[in-house]
Amino acid sequence: MAMADTNTPPAQMQVSDEVAITIKGMNKWYGQFHVLRDIDLTVQRGERIVICGPSGSGKSTLIRCINALEEHQQGSITVDGTPLSSDLKNIDKIRSEVGMCFQHFNLFPHLTILENCTLAPIWVRKTPKKEAEETAMYFLEKVKIPDQANKYPGQLSGGQQQRVAIARSLCMKPRIMLFDEPTSALDPEMIKEVLDTMIQLAEEGMTMLCVTHEMGFARQVANRVIFMDAGQIVEQNEPESFFLNPQNERTKLFLSQILGH
């Protein structure tokens, strides 16, 4: 999906010096298979990072490690000053502050849109129901589907479902958002509405890590693009230099393949 050319980012999009996520020397194996190798990554608050790479390169696994959906075996991850350890309290704390959107939305099909959005605030944050519903409606309006609040996820289109998923995460007032290929399961017509929502979020200064192949999106909102291959970070740069002047041979090949048609 081609996006409009980069303009100067709005004032809120400036990156602060505060550190949001630190990953140091992280390694992960699936059995004998070494999926993530010596990952070092620091994310500043307000940064918007796009991670791309061929399938199987470990990019999804990397962001799933950040909220402990996957366990890493070596190295350290610190999110908002909380170290990610096997301590369940820390994991729950991190998860409630890090929102995540999945490729297949993963809405709860047995609950209405509104219930999807209020469930976690009510049970995890112990927010009163009425207040949770108000917050949910606020975010549903923001993603432009307040009129669907009482429907079930099965009645919505893919794009609408993904926007609900974003609203559901936002209801927890997260400080960091992770996106795991949020548009890969969508029809072309619906990709734009989801990307627009994400751009809006970026403009409000949300810290975002986004695994995606939407290079237009990367150009427009990312302030860093990371290219991964075979479980390693191969190259990272500002989008402009990354796309116009890739250094690594593997990156060049990848870019020529995804941009070459």
Binding site: L69, V98, F102, V124, M172
Partner: peptide
């Protein structure tokens, strides 16, 4: 995973 990622 969706439940986990919401902190339940």
């Amino acid at each position: 995973e969706a439940g986990d990622s919401l902190g339940l």
